[in-house]
Amino acid sequence: MPIEKFVTLESTYIPLPIENVDTDQIIPARFLKATTKEGFGKNLFCDWRYEKDGSPKKDFVLNDPTYSGEILVAGKNFGSGSSREHAAWAIAGYGFKVVVSSYFADIFRNNSLNNGVLPVVVSEPFLNKLFECVEKDPKTKLKVDLEKQSITNLATGDTESFEINSYKKNCLLNGYDDIDFLLSIKPEIEAYEKQTVKF
């Protein structure tokens, strides 16, 4: 189904300076029993976010009103583990449009892009600076420009460029998805099938 177009975003951000955040933390397995894509946002980081009785844990960053924004900035190697796309639905459902880290697991990166969430890889120093800045001033903003493939820390003015292949970039800029594309080349797929040997 069509995804939301993404061109630029200027927003405050929420820091999560933990490394190797895996998809079991992003959305624990017990929430995978749904048969639709709705409603995952409220269970994002569930076990870190809520006490057993369902009350919010005070010390978890999503429960801290000091921090807000549509960008999540996470420690190295974000999204490893299970291939569950529910992790991307939870991130998107919560309202994040961009996730910044110095490293993403492959499947998570793909899943995010397929759901209109842009994963931005930055260098370690840039990432550490982001954690520093937001600690000093929670209202620090980031600017992400997909067209230019650049990310700017508006507190320091530091800018880095990030990679995204031009196909995925076009999909996001225009808000269309892979299935639309694949369905449009069905004759080529059928031609491929005819020329391959099947056992």
Partner: peptide, 16 residues
């Protein structure tokens, strides 16, 4: 693969 790709594969037997 993720669920979007499961859908791609169900629809076209291909993924990107």
């Amino acid at each position: 693969i993720g669920t979007s790709e499961v859908e791609m594969c169900l629809s076209t037997q291909c993924i990107m």
